[in-house]
Simulated assay, not measured.
Amino acid sequence: MQLSDDSIELLPFKESDFELFLEIITCPQMMEHVYDPLTYDEAKFSFGERLPPWKLESDKWRSFSINEIKSGEKLGYISLRIVNHNAKIAEVGFMIKASAQGKGVGSKALKLIKQYAFDALMLNKLVAFCSVHNSGSFNLLEKEDFSRERCLKQNTLINNHYRDDYAYGLCKPTL
């Protein structure tokens, strides 16, 4: 299944995506609402866990770089992992480089990953979590039809402070 539209394509992570991953995952500003930035060694380990091969039975992240078709520039990444195999539920997460934010990249990538999850993987539901202070992420999720299902109090520890998160869900459309 090709994961692309007229301007971006999602490509399974490969070794050459490590620099993009490292740039994002170690940046305090990018990680402000997610978790503490990783060290180089932690990033290397986490990245290695996201490399293919990946199987539907896995509980690891399936990650894709988000690439602009015209220039080939890597704009961020989007990932999913099955969190409940019986109910066919996967968590989705995304990180868009600061230079690409506000340009529709996240929305396009989320549309493509939804199509992949529901049509190719035959999943029933996607879930996502984001900080109550991360308006960019929760606005994107709501724009893409995710419903805010609850607020998780003191759900994430970032810089030694507990943060509240929103939980979102999107069920497979029924015909």
Rank of each mutant, 00 (worst) to 15 (best):
L3V: 02
L3F: 09
L3Q: 10
D5M: 10
I8S: 09
L10A: 08
F13M: 03
E15N: 12
S16E: 15
S16T: 11
F21Y: 15
F21G: 05
L22W: 06
I24Y: 00
T26W: 02
C27R: 09
C27F: 07
C27G: 08
C27K: 11
M31Q: 06
E32A: 13
E32M: 13
E32G: 02
V34K: 00
V34W: 07
P37Y: 01
L38G: 00
Y40P: 00
E42A: 13
A43G: 06
A43D: 05
A43T: 09
K44N: 08
K44H: 11
F47N: 03
F47C: 06
F47Q: 04
F47A: 07
G48W: 04
G48M: 08
E49Q: 15
L51P: 03
P52H: 14
P52C: 14
W54S: 07
W54C: 02
L56M: 13
E57A: 10
D59R: 12
K60I: 10
R62A: 15
S63A: 15
S63Y: 01
I66E: 05
I66R: 01
I69Y: 06
K70G: 01
K74N: 09
G76I: 09
Y77D: 14
Y77K: 02
L80V: 03
R81A: 13
V83H: 02
N84L: 04
H85N: 09
I89A: 09
A90H: 02
E91T: 03
M95N: 14
M95V: 05
I96G: 02
A100S: 14
A100D: 04
Q101I: 07
G106H: 06
G106A: 14
K111F: 06
I113A: 06
I113R: 05
Q115F: 11
Q115G: 11
D119H: 05
A120G: 01
L121M: 14
L123E: 08
L126S: 06
S131D: 12
H133K: 15
N134D: 15
S135Q: 13
F138N: 07
N139K: 14
L140T: 04
L141R: 09
E142C: 03
K143G: 08
E144L: 14
F146W: 11
E149T: 10
E149N: 09
R150T: 15
C151Y: 04
Q154T: 06
Q154M: 06
N155V: 00
T156R: 13
H161E: 12
Y162Q: 02
D165A: 03
A167K: 09
Y168M: 01
C171H: 03
P173G: 11
L175Q: 07
L175K: 10
